[in-house]
Amino acid sequence: MQIKVRLFATLRNGRGKELLTELQENGTVRDIIALLEIPETEVAILLINGRDGTLDRPLLETDVVSIFPPVGGG
């Protein structure tokens, strides 16, 4: 199945703003970040269909995943 992934801020570098990732049935966000070579420490905000999500939730083909890196300065 194909999952739409939206990337934000520095995660766009070398990957683009929005992409379709090919996942097996029951694939998760953890599979997506492995595929996109995004370290787990770079997943700060994680939204699935615009709501707070988890790395391990099995995804459906209609899901949209948004990933933001940590912003911590002040």
């Binding site: 801020a9 520095t10 787990e40 420490t41 770079e42 997943v43 700060a44 905000i45 994680l46 707070d52 790395l55 890196p69 940590p70 912003v71 911590g72 300065g73």
Partner: peptide
Amino acid sequence: KLYHAQCGKGDEVQL
């Protein structure tokens, strides 16, 4: 929810 990953600092360290 804003800091899922366990990290002390963010991308400001590089940027």
